[in-house]
């Protein structure tokens, strides 16, 4: 059987690269992944937070940040987030 890769192994391979985090709410983050734990709490660097509101998208720049895993919905490795072309 072809070698399996577990979901958290996939995230582990993303350490050091850019990642796009989509929350359960209308909130998204991009940043460089420094690490994470079993709850998928994540440490990110050079972070941009995107808040999508009826008034438009609000961007916030952050330095090193610990993101609570409780509200994370989806992770997209190697992406620059909602403003990337791909």
């Amino acid at each position: 059987m072809a070698s399996q890769i577990l979901p958290l192994e996939l995230i582990d391979r993303c350490i050091g690269s850019r990642i796009w985090v989509i929350m359960k709410s209308d909130r998204e983050f991009t940043g460089t992944l420094l690490g994470f734990d079993d709850f998928v709490n994540m440490v990110l660097e050079d972070v941009t937070e995107y808040e999508t509101t009826p008034q438009g998208r609000k961007k916030t720049r952050l330095a090193q940040t610990l993101l609570n895993g409780n509200n994370i919905c989806m992770l997209i490795p190697g992406s620059e987030g909602p403003e990337s072309d791909s």
Binding site: I15, G35, V43, L66
Partner: peptide, 18 residues
Amino acid sequence: PTGTPTDFLKGVVGKKVI
């Protein structure tokens, strides 16, 4: 620091945070 949440928290105590 290896960058895990625990390492981050150890490093950030006593610093200004948001």
